[in-house]
């Protein structure tokens, strides 16, 4: 089950998907905010979102799991 990992530390600015959504490779799924800059995080697999580990406003560390995709 592929997991989408936070590539850098920051705050979750926007979550653009919900559990159950179908996502494609390279879809924008989450926007992180670090150093007052919005950084879109792209999906690196296709499938269905089974779990959202973060919500808007959360602070995430680098390497944290953001989304689980099946």
């Amino acid at each position: 089950m592929p997991e989408l990992i936070a590539p850098l530390a920051g705050n979750v600015w926007k979550v653009l998907i919900a559990v159950g959504d179908k996502v494609e490779m390279d879809d924008e799924v989450i926007i992180l905010e670090a150093l007052k800059m919005e950084t879109p995080i792209y999906c690196d697999d296709s499938g269905t979102v089974t779990e959202l580990r973060v919500k808007e406003g959360d602070a995430v560390e680098e390497g944290a799991v953001l989304v689980v995709i099946d």
Binding site: L8, A9, A34, L35, M37, T39, D44
Partner: peptide, 20 residues
């Protein structure tokens, strides 16, 4: 400057997060 690097880097490769 770091933001700028990050931006130019992600234009070349959208999976490149150079900020940190």
């Amino acid at each position: 400057a770091a933001r700028c690097v990050h931006k130019v880097g992600s234009e070349a490769n959208r999976r490149n997060y150079l900020l940190m």
